[in-house]
Each structure stands twice: as C-alpha cells, then as structure tokens.
Design a protein around this nucleic acid. Structure first.
Lengths: 114, 114
DNA sequence: TGAATATATAACTATATAGCTATGCAATGT
DNA sequence: ACATTGCATAGCTATATAGTTATATATTCA
C-alpha cells in the first residue's frame, strides 16, 4: 500500500507528469528541465527526487550533469511499471504537453544556464 | 491534463483506494463504508464525491440509502478505465485491504447506524 | 588554487487537503 | 405532522505539499 501510494502520488502532479512525458522523448538533465518547465531549480530537483523515490525515473551522474531517464520496466515495482506503460499512450494531444515537448527537443544543456 | 490529474489524485489516497477495493467486492452505501473505514461519515462522503467526480465510482439513490458502485469501463474516461482495471490486480495481498474486505463482506446497512 | 557551473538541501511561506463537529435536507415510518 | 435515519454541505483546524530564496556540495576548467 505504501508503495502504491508513493507511485500514485508521484504521478498525480502537473509538473511531474510533464517531466515524465519529456523523459519519454529523451533523457534530460535538471537544468534542461528547469528551462522548459519555467520553475526554480530546487523545485525541479525536489520533483525529481519524488519521482526517483517512486521508481518512476532513474538518474546517473555524468561529469557536472545528472542525467535523468525513465525507469525501465524490469527494474521497478509493478505500480511504476504499469503507470509508465499507461502514460506512453496518455496526454499525447494535451496542448501544454505538446508545447513542452517541442521545447524539450531543442533545449541544450550547455546553454540552458544562460 | 485536468482529467488525468483528477483521476490520479482521486486514486492516490489511502482511504479512497480502500473504498475502491471494497467496491470491487460489492456495492455499498455510505454508512457501511463508514463502519468499515472507521472515519466520520462526512469524511466518507467527501471521498466519495472526489471518486465520483473522477469517474471512478457511480452512485444511485435507493430509498433512504445511496448505493455506490465502481464505474463501468464503457461509461468513463480513459484514465479511470485504466486505473480501475489495474487496481483489480493490485493490493490483493495488502494486510489492511484484506482485513477491510473481510469486514465489508459482513457489514449490514440496516444495523451499521447502531 | 580559485572561479564557474550543475545539482542538492535547508528553511521558510503559501496553498491544498483531510479530518472533525455542527447542521441542513430528503426519505421513511408512526 | 413529527421523529428517525442516511447522506451532503459548511465551517473550522491541522497537516501535507509545492513553491520560493539562500546556501552547501561537487565537478570542471583556467
């Protein structure tokens, strides 16, 4: 039950589902997501921690950056696995998501801090 | 997006997921759920309203009682449909859910107000 | 070594949410 | 008509959550 709630609460949030949809497209670092989402860096960091605690995303340090990616089905709990699977088909036509994905396509980690 | 969030937030809550699991077993009125959940009647009522707003449950008045049931796949949005479907396989082994279901089996609307 | 950059954490504030009690409303039965 | 019962709503309080700014940590590069 605790696990279920952790996953569902993590997924039941606007900025966080936006993050998940962006990560469906490609891996991103924190500052790239910040640039696209338009919220503060600590806020993005916090959302990412909740998503990672819920097994929805994974992170890996690469030099100065931390790359985030969607968790893979074989490495997560049943709830995360199911939600990530469902999400792929969801919100495809959502205006705010579409706009976000366009921005996420072109955002560049080497320039997003400027 | 608004619809997605409404469904996910409704499902991402302890008492509410308990309600959904009980309704998988059988239809219930408010006072029966109150008796099993051990929270106040207004609190149960509020949870039910959120679940109904999210298309996860439906209600029907029957004399003095209001019967609640799970929404049927053909009458709801894609998110509710998917979550209800997933939920059937989830939390089967959860201790608190199992205990709850046992109580829900024997609760009786004609005596739960006493 | 020291500056710059990316991320995480701490501390705080504002808002949202869940619980409660009190009360209103509708249906039942005498 | 009146009392009873089931449910909904209003109003309140406590807690949880998301956002902020300030600061700490870690890596890169001159």
């Amino acid at each position: 039950m605790r696990e279920y709630l952790r996953v569902m609460k993590a997924a039941a949030d606007g900025p966080r589902v936006k993050i998940l949809k962006m990560l469906e497209m490609r891996d991103l670092c924190v500052c790239e997501m910040q640039a696209v989402l338009g919220i503060s860096q600590p806020s993005v960091s916090r959302h990412l921690r909740l998503l990672e605690d819920a097994d929805l995303v994974r992170s890996e340090k690469e030099g100065m950056w931390t790359n985030f990616r969607l968790a893979r089905p074989e490495e997560v709990n049943q709830y995360s696995k199911a939600i990530l699977e469902q999400l792929k088909g969801w919100l495809k036509k959502d205006q705010s998501i579409q706009k976000l994905l366009k921005q996420a396509q072109v955002v560049d980690r080497t320039t997003c801090g400027s």
